[in-house]
Design a binder for these strands. Structure first.
Lengths: 339, 339
DNA sequence: GTCACGCCTGCAAACGCTTCCAGCGCCCGC
DNA sequence: GCGGGCGCTGGAAGCGTTTGCAGGCGTGAC
């Protein structure tokens, strides 16, 4: 099963067999064919350990993610995996589930000798971590966020937020709530652009933001439901809500329905993502291409490995998708009619 | 950065350094401490290639999945990843996106020398593939499905289906449709138990199944929406629908809403999974623990690697979750009132 | 008919770690 | 006081590839 066996069967030295199999020049065609035939007959698979040791590479790309169950991550990982496979690289998956494993990861940098490149998926890092990361000695690519000066692919969070907010403002809403997503468990930076867009849009419309209309929660649907409850508890609740993700927005819609309020007649809701279930639940949203971001990150990583130049910062476009969860505000008098 | 450097700094031979770091007995405590200190100072990380080559293992577990964006897979992978990390194993991810990559995977068995064990996640294999798989020479564990006589963890699909169907029958439904999930692109076997449960439940209730009430589609919400459209087009549409997954069920609900029908007053819907968004959309369903299945599969793989005995077949329980999408059928006269 | 030059091929030395085997002290028991 | 044994350490041989270097042979040019 070893290269030596293949070489013996083909009647050549291991050196020649190696050259023949890995496509080096200066191997006679007839020899190459004989070696390949022998390899096929013996079902030979090179030991990646030995190859890696001799060549000083691993043939693997490490992917670091904070979550997997959330839609964006699964979709991005899917795109990334496809591209890496085409490039002949194996995908090593690291999930940093909590602050502890995150700390351990950046302290020990276990990927140091385990991969030829690292892709950070939806993972904002802080100053110290970036500094640590740079010592890893391999190429780093980020998707869904920016990481220092490393190549990255992401949406323009601010622009996406503006698309959502401008849509609501255009419909005539003046009192707009926002549900901000954060990741306290992982201490992940919240997408700053999505929040700044909220303030900027209000400012442009001449509206003074009410701090009570902004509530920060985790990324889950349940959190969204809870946040909406909080907003409904206000003396003067919003007529529209802009959520940082569809999953959160869907939670908000559920709370509204439970409260007997109609969407969008009583309260409009928009999210960000275009989650597959957003179409199913008629949720207005700002679509972002998740799989494509993963694919692009993969291509950038491969290009870096090949020594080709890579674009430092790629921004993929987002698109406002208007569905049934957003509409003009009702005349004040008709609001709060319990359906 | 190499073991030799660490050894030199600690004033011992590489052999002793190796033993000290990998926790072998017969190393003086003081020596061990000195080696560890040197390793820490030099930020030493062992080369997995070299270790693997010398030891004949890889320290990696390959995970094979057909999808990532679907909820179950992300959640199961999350649980699996956590357990493998605790066990000190790296996770190598293989996604078999279409029939072509599937074929290639089983032909070439690329994981052969790349991992110490293989976990198949939600991946039913056929006879030929199983035969190929057995030649891989490493332990195989399946989650979410059974694979030959290999250890596996999954729910009892038939029992889960019965929970859903019995619930609908108990509510008084007699004309029950079913949306069967399949994966034609990957040629994945549909979960037979979920279909047999449909027939068995009807039989027990003395109802002759109407072939027109059973429509087979892919796992996506969009498919569910389309399937529901088909069922609504029947001369005598069902009063309840049992879908093979929540994602499909949610698609079905969307079609019903669009058609102006009320859920559950006009048509009841139940799914399987307890997807996080099922709670948000008030969908009745049969809950299955996805993350737990991943965790168990991980533990089984680790146990196998440690040479410990592993339970051949583990079945995790499912649980009927009654929410707002299922209720008793309306008296015939009141049905089809366009809300 | 020579000579030089290329193509191919093989030898052997890495790559970085583990582990078998042997050796060296030291302690304990007689 | 002496021998056996045990605890600890080092030497060296792999593990399976790749690749620099050198050599053999054929070919074309002169």
């Amino acid at each position: 099963m070893n290269l030596a066996d293949v070489a013996r069967r083909a009647g050549v030295s291991p050196a020649t067999a190696s050259r023949a199999l890995s496509g080096h020049p200066h191997v006679a065609e007839v020899t190459r064919a004989r070696v390949w035939e022998a390899a096929r007959a013996l079902e030979y698979v090179a030991s990646p350990e030995a190859t890696g040791l001799a060549r000083g590479t691993t043939g693997r790309v490490a992917v670091v993610v904070p979550h997997l169950a959330r839609w964006w991550f699964g979709a991005a990982l899917e795109g990334l995996g496809t591209v890496l496979r085409e490039g002949g690289r194996d995908l090593l998956l690291y999930r940093l589930g909590d602050a502890g494993s995150r700390q351990a990861f950046f302290d020990e940098l276990p990927t140091r000798r385990r991969a030829d490149a690292v892709v950070l998926l939806g993972f904002g890092v802080d100053e110290r971590e970036r500094e640590r990361l740079d010592r890893i000695g391999v190429g780093i690519v980020a998707a869904g966020t920016r990481v220092g000066s490393h190549p990255s692919v992401s949406i323009d969070d601010h622009a996406a937020g503006r698309q959502a907010m401008d849509h609501l403002l255009h419909l005539g809403h003046r009192r707009i709530g926002t549900i901000v997503a954060a990741d306290p468990e992982l201490d992940l930076a919240q997408p700053a652009g999505r929040s700044s867009a909220y303030r900027a849009a209000l400012a442009d419309a001449g509206i003074t933001p009410d701090p009570a209309l902004s509530v920060t929660v985790t990324w889950s649907p349940e959190s969204g439901a809870r946040a909406m409850g909080e907003l409904l508890g206000l003396a003067d609740p919003p007529t529209a809500v802009y959520a940082h993700s569809d999953e959160i927005a869907l939670g908000a819609v559920r709370t509204l329905r439970r409260a007997g309020l109609r969407v969008p007649e009583d309260v409009s809701v928009v999210g960000i993502d275009d989650h597959p279930l957003a179409a199913m639940t008629d949720l207005s949203t700002v679509a972002q291409p998740a799989a494509e971001q993963g694919e692009l990150a993969g291509r950038m990583a491969l290009a870096g490995l090949a020594g080709e130049p890579v674009d430092p910062v790629v921004t993929v476009p987002t698109r406002l998708v208007i569905r049934g969860s957003s509409g003009p505000p009702q005349a004040a008098g008709r609001r709060w009619r319990r359906s």
